[in-house]
């Protein structure tokens, strides 16, 4: 955009410049983001007021519902309950998944043996295993943790495998030319080079883990956030049901955003401001 201080020679110029400055402000990312959110929330509010459906509360009603469940403490409690299988399952998936991925990346026979399972798991609708898990482990925490694991692990494993396998050939040769031992190559070149992609696997795994934990809470037994959703669905208290859904979605998105920040600050010097 033109911002130099050239003396206007044409009378129309200042207004042109003003218009362009106005345009600058209008397309500023922050402005557009606010506009975008306002538009969608406004649309929600409008659609709720028509109403689109008896089961579609307005945005403001949902906010009131959110205040109610937050005020009586049920939302906080529900989050604690939901986060338990999520965090246990995710930790197990990360440790086991990264471990398996690195092992396969460094050791061809293990890759031959193990990778096909995860390639199929990645493509398959593993959610269909939830009834089996319930059958085997009952309706307690174990089944929910395992649900989280089967959803989150395939992507973590395959990303880690790919990351290790995709270490640039020239970096490996470089390490060898400086007489790196196998373990030095792994520690100094392969793992640092794989870290960013492993971490993005963790991000995708976390998103899948959230899908899994909510699914488990809706399918196995209603607990935590899943309980608020199904209970309010059954008594047709839609604002509260929507409030619970909104809160878990916002939470999941912020959680994954946080992971991305960590990834940038730890592993991606090129993306740091």
């Amino acid at each position: 955009m033109q911002t130099t201080d050239v003396a206007p020679t044409v009378a129309a110029l200042p207004s042109v410049r003003e218009a362009s400055r106005l345009r600058d402000i209008l397309i500023h990312p922050l402005v557009l983001r606010i506009v975008s959110f306002a538009a969608v929330l406004g649309l929600w509010e409008y659609a709720g007021r028509i109403p689109l459906s008896a089961a579609f509360p307005t945005f403001l009603e949902t906010l009131v519902g959110l205040r109610d469940i937050a005020a009586d403490g049920s939302l906080g409690k529900a989050f604690l309950i939901t986060l338990k299988p999520l965090l246990i399952g995710l930790s197990v998936s990360v440790v086991l998944g990264v471990g398996l991925g690195v092992l396969m990346g460094l050791h061809r026979p293990s890759e031959w043996l193990i990778a096909p399972i995860f390639i199929i798991a990645q493509a398959a609708p593993l959610a269909a295993l939830i009834p089996v898990l319930t059958f085997a482990y009952g309706i307690g925490l174990t089944a929910k943790v395992l649900t989280v694991c089967i959803m989150a692990m395939p992507v973590i494993v395959l990303n880690t495998l790919g990351a290790v396998r995709n270490t640039p050939q020239s970096l490996l040769e470089m390490a060898r030319s400086f007489l790196a031992s196998r373990s030095q190559s792994i520690r100094h070149v392969i793992l640092p080079s794989a870290s960013p992609m492993i971490f993005s696997g963790l991000r995708l795994g976390s998103a899948a883990a959230f899908i899994g934990v909510i699914l488990a809470e809706l399918l196995i037994t209603p607990t935590g956030i899943g309980d608020i959703i199904s209970y309010n669905q059954s008594v047709a208290d839609y604002p509260k049901m929507y409030a619970a859904i909104l809160s878990i979605i916002v939470f999941a998105v912020l959680f994954i955003e946080l992971l991305e920040r960590i990834e940038v600050s730890l592993f991606r010097p090129e993306k740091r401001p």
């Binding site: 470089m174 007489l179 070149v189 640092p192 080079s193 592993f267 010097p269």
Partner: peptide, 18 residues
Amino acid sequence: GPGQERSFVFQDFALMPW
């Protein structure tokens, strides 16, 4: 194999980005 008496400069630099 590689040895201490030799060192190599790579066409694509082979610098560790991290």
